[in-house]
Nucleic acid binder design. Structure first.
Lengths: 233, 233
DNA sequence: ACGGGTTGCGTTGTATACAATGACGCATTA
DNA sequence: TAATGCGTCATTGTATACAACGCAACCCGT
């Protein structure tokens, strides 16, 4: 299901993207965080100078950050006009979750033929941990589930061993829309999500790629359903 | 099968990428062209200053161009060290064509349910044109086939109407590796490729998404086969 | 002869200054 | 009053100058 961020922050720190201490990376993370937190709502107009002052750097690294964010699809650059935070339509929703379904099910299928015992063990442990959080208190603590869920999906990508596939999934999953999916889950949705996870692990154990792939596809599309009330998010 | 560039230059001119007359865009196209033409071989080290002089612009737009090319996967940036043109391994080959197979077959499936008569007519005309070129002289004129082939695959993306899917396919298809696939085709390979195209059109006419999707998957994987002799390209 | 430290050079990273472009408001005119 | 042309302003695009970093060669001490 539409988990929060399919990307694992720790592994995210490859050369190409945002981990280092360069000013450009700090600006990148700062602006990105702001957009994801709706500090700048969709449609907002971002001025380079202002961002530079807010981040405490010069315009040059801000420019680089904006270019990267544009490539990520978080905002749009219009020549001589500036950066505009992207808004999301129903079509975007369909496209994003359609891509996720295609790519992540592909990953699940690959992982089925490449998973080793230690991987299965860690996946199982993650399921345990997530179920513990869900069954814990009254209100579900999303801040504790989300990292576990990210790790689950990220581990699947690692097992599949397809770097490009993983990179594309991260591109898709790190959309504000997707990131907020998890928070919309009801207790029932969460329970189903956990079941999906378990079933995927089982399919991997059976080395049944078709099975794993199918469950993953359902898992993602179930997340799409949370947005059936449009809300123009 | 692995056609040359799946991207259609004309439609390429959306805001985000390379079409305008800005210095940064000129630098982008110049460097990109150089890499694709093997003017800078894989592993080559690119210096910003040198590129700036060659392009006739300053370092600032060159920097932007390098960042974009890095996002495209054509080169890799190492902090404080510079840009290095990417080399390709067998794993890259498998990943790239695997992604193409997944994404383009998805497009074909979508297109089957959305194609209109005028689309089918244009696809048919493109098949006619390509077959005319192939059956023409002694040696096949790739410079005439390639644009037609690009248009064929690009039109399928348009018909499918999924912008993100199209964007991702272009990302994958515009790798130097893929761009040179076509030139490796034997006359037999080309004939099979034309048959695939025809069959796809037929499947679209029958509104059979599964059929179209399957043929496209075969079409792409047949292109992968051309590289079975590694050659470390 | 070999190892460690140091210095010098080249390259990228960042900041600032200048030019060009598009948008907005105002005045002018029919 | 509405439409249009012009001027000003804000903002991005580009160029240049300076700082920081990494690498390599060299020198010196052992």
């Amino acid at each position: 299901m539409a988990d929060s961020a399919g990307a694992l922050a720790p592994q995210w720190d490859n050369g190409s993207s945002g981990g280092s201490n360069r000013a450009a990376d700090r600006a990148y993370r700062f602006i990105r965080e702001g957009i994801l937190a709706s500090r700048w709502p969709p449609g907002a107009h971002l001025r380079e100078q202002e961002l530079a002052e807010l981040t405490g750097v010069s315009r040059t690294p801000v420019r680089e950050a904006l270019r990267r964010l544009s490539a990520d699809g978080l905002l749009q650059l219009v020549p001589n006009l500036g950066a505009k935070v992207n808004a999301w339509t129903i079509q975007d929703l369909d496209e994003i979750f359609g891509l996720r379904a295609t790519l992540e099910s592909q990953v699940a299928g690959l992982a089925a033929s490449r998973a080793e015992p230690q991987h299965l063990a860690e996946l199982g442990a993650l399921c345990d941990a997530m179920e513990a959080v869900v069954g814990d208190g009254d209100a579900v603590d999303f801040s504790r589930i989300t990292p576990l869920n990210d790790r689950f999906h990220g581990l699947l990508i690692d097992i599949a061993g397809d770097r490009r596939l993983g990179q594309m999934i991260r591109q898709v999953v790190e959309m504000p829309l997707v990131l907020r999916t998890f928070a919309r889950y009801s207790r029932r949705d969460l329970a189903r999500s956990m079941n999906h996870h378990r079933e995927i692990v089982e399919a991997l154990t059976a080395r049944d790629g078709e099975w794993a792939s199918s469950v993953m596809r359902a898992h993602v599309r179930a997340g799409r359903a949370v947005f059936t009330v449009p809300k123009t998010e």
